[in-house]
């Protein structure tokens, strides 16, 4: 039998990297991240129906904004400062929600809907850059909503910073905030990939809880003490506060407002570094466990 005759394979040729040091991992990760970002753009940007685009990007966030402003009005606390507080919180949270859900939805979509997760997982690429790429594009698209919300806020009396937004501060807090939230998102994704069909709702539930705790619509001081501590531990709290200072030029009322901007940046940086260090490790542990249990390739329908 010809095929069973001894064959000497030259392992040093085309696939020598398989047997030598894994050089170029960063380049491979960058390629995977860009490729998955392109995929996410094709999926998330599939706005064949302008009506859905309108609802998703504009009407939904503005409807929530209107709701919160109505609550303020009924409570008799509607004023330029409170409008600014709610508008920025609502705008930034568009990005928080999208980035937090992004990795989970990418993993579950690939497992349940597109049935491609086995083929991606079996490539040399890690699922990590693939998930990050998908989350970043979701966040980018959500940023369009955020800009629209802020634009509408400016039109209805939100007090902007004298001399325009503090762009360097905005750039720094957005970079740190986005990094930390994507980190939390991938950690959440690694948990959710071990769950069955109801896993789709978990990121939304977590994001909703965070929304109430991070000072997006209520000042942190209005929460019970225990929840204040939880809120203070969330990077989103510091991120939103930083954006408020960059756009409005004023700090939030209460304890958070008493911190200097450099101290706020220090806290946000430390939090982001910790999350950035921990999230990939948590992701790896979660994916390894899913591989061990056989969850990676197990669709809910099966």
């Amino acid at each position: 039998m010809e095929s069973c005759s001894p064959v000497q394979i030259d392992l040093t040729s085309r696939t020598s990297r398989a047997f030598g040091p894994l050089r170029g991992d960063a380049a491979d990760a960058a390629r995977s991240l860009i490729a998955s970002a392109r995929l996410a753009w094709a999926i998330e940007g599939n706005w064949a129906e302008p009506f859905f685009l309108l609802v998703y990007l504009i009407i939904r966030p503005l409807a929530f904004l209107g709701l919160f402003l109505a609550v303020l009005s009924i409570g008799g606390t509607l004023n330029p400062a409170s409008i600014g507080f709610v508008v920025v919180g609502q705008a930034v949270f568009q990005i928080v929600g999208a980035a937090m859900q992004g990795p989970t939805h990418a993993l579950l979509d690939d497992r349940e809907r597109y049935r491609t997760i086995r083929y991606i997982f079996a490539t040399p690429s890690s699922l990590l850059p693939v998930s990050i790429g998908r989350a970043l594009v979701k966040a980018l698209i959500a940023a369009i909503s955020a800009v629209i919300v802020i634009g509408v806020g400016a039109l209805i009396g939100m007090p902007m910073r004298a001399g325009g937004p503090d762009l360097p501060l905005l750039l720094v807090v957005m970079t740190l905030g986005l990094t930390s939230i994507v980190g939390l998102g991938i950690a959440l994704g690694a948990v959710c990939v071990q769950l069955r069909n109801d896993a789709w709702g978990y990121p939304q539930a977590v994001a909703g809880s965070v929304f109430l705790l991070c000072g997006a619509i209520f000042p942190l001081d209005t929460l019970p003490r225990a929840l204040q501590l939880i809120g203070a531990a969330l990077p989103m709290t510091w991120w939103i506060e930083g954006v408020r200072r960059a756009l409005l030029g004023t700090a939030s009322p209460g304890l958070l407002g008493e911190l200097s901007t450099p101290l706020l940046l220090l806290v946000l940086t430390v939090g982001t570094v910790l999350i950035t260090l921990a999230a990939p490790r948590l992701f790896t542990i979660g994916i390894d466990r899913a591989r061990e249990k056989g969850y990676l390739d197990r669709s809910t329908a099966s």
Binding site: G24, R31, S32, I34, A35, A42, N46, T123, P124, S125
Partner: peptide, 16 residues
């Protein structure tokens, strides 16, 4: 949503 060529190109990237 991808074309056949786009999907293959994406996997080529995943293969490094």
């Amino acid at each position: 949503l991808l074309t056949a060529r786009e999907q293959l190109a994406m996997f080529a990237q995943f293969y490094g």
